[in-house]
Design a protein around this nucleic acid. Structure first.
Lengths: 203, 203
DNA sequence: GGCCTTCTTGATCAATCGTTCAGCAAGGGG
DNA sequence: CCCCTTGCTGAACGATTGATCAAGAAGGCC
């Protein structure tokens, strides 16, 4: 008979990653109610005390989960863009397509984003993650737009910063609307609206 | 000496309105933490029991607050539109201007919207309010777009439903981005981006 | 093989939550 | 003016919250 171990020790870095993914699962499945030390501990299969051992405050864990999700989404999108080849227009289409794919456009994950956003106001850590990831996202979008502008040489070149802000807001708004009421819009229509934006603005 | 009354009775309809405005104040000031019977009761200057006397569940009160805020915002916007006169283009500009005015674009109120949205998933009452108010909003925007299209007779008339969905998403996205990070964008730039959308799509 | 670091547990704390309910009292109708 | 409806109070209940901490045990190192 092998001696039953009560638990297995895990290296901090690995354990923290484990806790972060458990947090995301909790937030996606249960929304704001899932942002609780006890529920996350249960989902991770560990004791409540372990969470405060690795994170001084629950807020720190959630901030890391925010960073994790935002980074993964942008990475997925950029991977799709890279697959699309070198044509600026097709790269932008890939950006839209992945943005409206199931891996990103998931009503369950909206619950998580809502929790993140609601914490930004009072948590400096959350604010920091939001500002940084948002800048990365908008810069990626701005780069793609800049490439397309250079390629097309449209009659009137728009302000790049405002254009990126507008397209980014359009994407966020469509994503939000779809998650809150999937009946009102299809993913294909979401992509189509973004494509229209490009054709209308960079002609 | 006038006999001190312990409290004053108020007609149900008036009391409910009182509770709704107190709820909105709580949600705006304290976010998700303000969505509590005790805090709302304290803000309204009544006992906790009174809330459950008028509303079977806290959820019902919050749903009424959601309805109240969404209706007020749309009413403010349409009032601005009415003031703008009869020119379809100027009416649309008024829609944008009011949307980015302080009465609507308030980071404090974002906290309230986030609470509402996070409750939609599990509350049928919240889902009903969201669907209805959202349809009203999008229909108002669609009407203004239809007027402008009839007035301008643009070369290629866009799908009205998709156009309204797109512009509505753009407004929501800009509003969300500004509330979450007011440094990243000014209200005037928000209006400018919306104006650009109109000029680019309905030329 | 035994020691020692430190990862992990789980009981415990005070605070807060939504809801219930017995009873008080305000103030209009008869 | 009194009664009776009902708006209203506030204590109480059980559940849940984030955080603390003493104790335990896993597993690498000498």
């Amino acid at each position: 008979m092998e001696p039953e171990r009560k638990y297995r020790r895990v290296k901090p870095a690995l354990r923290r990653e484990h806790l972060v993914t458990s947090t995301l699962r909790c937030l996606a499945e249960q929304g704001a109610a899932g942002a609780s030390i006890r529920r996350i501990a249960a989902a991770a299969g560990v004791s409540t005390g372990l969470i405060n051992h690795h994170y001084a405050h629950l807020e720190d864990l959630v901030a890391e989960a925010y960073d994790h999700l935002a980074t993964r989404v942008l990475r997925d999108i950029l991977a799709g863009v890279a697959e699309a080849g070198g044509d600026p227009r097709q790269r932008l289409t890939a950006f839209f397509t992945v943005s409206f794919s199931a891996a990103v456009l998931d009503p369950d994950y909206l619950s998580a984003w809502l929790v993140f956003w609601s914490m930004i106001r009072h948590s400096e850590a959350m604010k920091t993650v939001h500002t940084r990831t948002n800048e990365e996202y908008r810069r990626s979008l701005g780069d793609l737009l800049a490439d397309l502008i250079r390629d097309r040489q449209p009659a009137r070149t728009p302000d790049l910063r405002l254009a990126a802000a507008g397209l980014s807001a359009l994407l966020d708004g469509l994503w939000l609307a779809w998650c809150l009421n999937p009946q009102g819009l299809t993913a294909q229509e979401g992509v189509a609206i973004c494509e229209d934006w490009v054709e209308a603005h960079l002609r």
